[in-house]
C-alpha cells in the first residue's frame, strides 16, 4: 500500500511521514500532483490563506477535488482539515476546497492557541474517550459529518468523516500510541 503526503512547504513533515510508515505504508512526500497512491494525506500548518494559496500555486486544488470525487481515500490534518471546508474567518478572501460546507471560526477561549491534550467526545468506538493532541486557534464549530468533538470555550469538531474522507483538527502523529493506531485504522 502506498501513501502520498502532500508537501505544501508549510512545515516539517518528518513526524507524519514516520507515523504513516510505521502504519505499514510505503510513504512518499509529493510536491506536485501524482495519482499512483492508495491514500493521500494533506497536513498543514500556518495561516488558512497561506496554505490555500499554496494549494493553488502547486496545482493541487482540482486534483484533490477529482481524487475525492472518485471516492479515493483522503486525510486532512489540522489546517489540512480546515481546508476541506469552504472558508475561514482567519482569511476571509481565501477559498477552501469546499468538500464540506461551513466556515472555520476562531476559538473563543481566552488562551489561544489551544495547546495540549483533550479527550474526544464521540459515539464512534474508535474515537470515544481517547486523548489526542491539539495545536490550533481556529476550528469548525459543527458539521453534519462531525464524528468527534471537544470543548474549548465552546464545542468544536475535532474530526469529520464522510466515506473514505477524513479530517482531523488534532495531530494523530503527535497523539501517542493511540494516535498512531487511529491513523492506521483510517489509512486502511
Amino acid at each position: 500500500m502506498r501513501a502520498g503526503i502532500i508537501n505544501l512547504n508549510t512545515g516539517n513533515l518528518l513526524s507524519i511521514v514516520s507515523a504513516v510508515k510505521k502504519a505499514g505504508f510505503e510513504t512518499v512526500v509529493i510536491d506536485k500532483p501524482q495519482a499512483d497512491f492508495d491514500v493521500l494525506l494533506l497536513p498543514g500548518q500556518g495561516r488558512f490563506g497561506f496554505v490555500a494559496a499554496q494549494l493553488d500555486k502547486y496545482n493541487w486544488r482540482e486534483f484533490i477535488l477529482n481524487w475525492i470525487a472518485q471516492d479515493k481515500r483522503f486525510i486532512g490534518i489540522c489546517v489540512g482539515m480546515q481546508l476541506m471546508f469552504e472558508s475561514s474567518v482567519e482569511d476571509t478572501d481565501a477559498k477552501g476546497l469546499g468538500v464540506f460546507s461551513g466556515q472555520i471560526q476562531k476559538l473563543k477561549h481566552a488562551k489561544t492557541p489551544m495547546v495540549g491534550w483533550a479527550k474526544l467526545n464521540s459515539e464512534n468506538e474508535l474515537f470515544k474517550d481517547d486523548y489526542v493532541y491539539f495545536v490550533n486557534s481556529y476550528a469548525i464549530a459543527s458539521s453534519k459529518y462531525c464524528i468527534a468533538s471537544v470543548n474549548y470555550a465552546g464545542d468544536f469538531c475535532a474530526a469529520v468523516q464522510k466515506g473514505k474522507l477524513y479530517g482531523f483538527q488534532f495531530h494523530p502523529e503527535k497523539s501517542g500510541l493511540y494516535g498512531r493506531e487511529l491513523l492506521k485504522q483510517c489509512l486502511n
Binding site: W117, A118, K119, N121, F134, N151, Y152
Partner: peptide
C-alpha cells in the same frame, strides 16, 4: 473551566 484540555 470550559475546556477539554487536561494538565500535562
Amino acid at each position: 473551566l470550559n475546556t477539554s484540555l487536561v494538565p500535562r
